[in-house]
Nucleic acid binder design. Structure first.
Lengths: 153, 153
DNA sequence: CGCCTAATCTGCACGAGTTGCGAACTCGCA
DNA sequence: TGCGAGTTCGCAACTCGTGCAGATTAGGCG
């Protein structure tokens, strides 16, 4: 997504107001490389602005998604929001739930345009696996059980 | 997923019982190339077995997922279940919500194994776009508004 | 063939995540 | 500075999925 100043302009250009709540969320989202849930963002925002409503967080996230400044990530559980709108893919750790942005090679080689009777717009690629940290916790065996709770990132 | 007879054996082999409810769901799932939600399956099952519980549908679906006979598909909204366990990808129509199985070329060319400090297990690829039917309904313009409700498949 | 028990089914209540609504508030143009 | 459309907030409501407990049943055994 664009930086807070640009988003401010973009909102005003649409006749939308730029409130302190929105500005805070612009900043929080712009400064992260994670993929927070609405609730995680709400907790973070509450630290800087006690009294902000979870409802407002949802509202603003939905606005940003509608403006295509934010992408949604569905990997089960709550919806996650991705401020990185550049072409990239996701590596999801099945042990700890962390999502990492990755840039795979060979994406252009996919025969997406050749799908019969379909007009592709966007291709999403998610690699599920085990991140280095979780692999270290369970040497030589696949980490079936979740060693730390399913959360984070 | 395997056929109903094979699933029956697999369930018995694990000491699990094969009830009429499960057999019905085995059949419904085996005979579809769609990606039903639990509720859609419940409606379909209710037609043939009035009184079957939605709870039972969820239960059985979860069992099948645990046995890796069924894969879950998260595209927002309710969880969808995919009986096709062969390697394939999904084409999702953003207008009508239909999911179609597709077999893209070039998947092996993705640099999945090269992701730093990560042990990949499975790669999921979803192509979002507009299916032929929806494209026909909105000639020459991209179908922003949903012309028929977001549902199906 | 009927018994017995663990497995299963069902209905309901509950919990998490998300949205609808309306009253109070406020950004920002005039 | 004043006004009004746009926002925020809090709560109720809604959806999806699961926990629970009592009733039911598959299927091994005698």
């Amino acid at each position: 997504m664009r930086n807070p100043a640009e988003l401010t302009d973009a909102f005003r250009a649409k006749g939308w107001k730029v409130t302190p709540q929105r500005q805070l969320l612009f900043r929080l989202l712009h400064d992260t490389d994670r993929h927070p849930t609405a609730d995680a963002l709400f907790v973070e925002a509450s630290g800087q602005m006690p009294g902000i409503s979870l409802r407002t967080v949802y509202q603003t996230l939905n606005d940003l998604v509608a403006m295509d400044e934010l992408h949604v990530v569905n990997i089960g559980g709550s919806t996650r929001f991705d401020p990185n709108t550049a072409a990239h893919q996701h590596a999801v750790c099945s042990a700890c739930g962390t999502i990492r942005d990755v840039y795979l090679s060979g994406v252009d080689g996919l025969g997406v345009a050749e799908v019969d009777d379909f007009h592709p717009q966007r291709t999403r690629i998610t690699v599920t696996g085990v991140c280095g940290r979780c692999a270290d916790l369970t040497p030589t065996r696949r980490p079936t059980g979740s060693h730390h709770k399913e959360n984070q990132q």
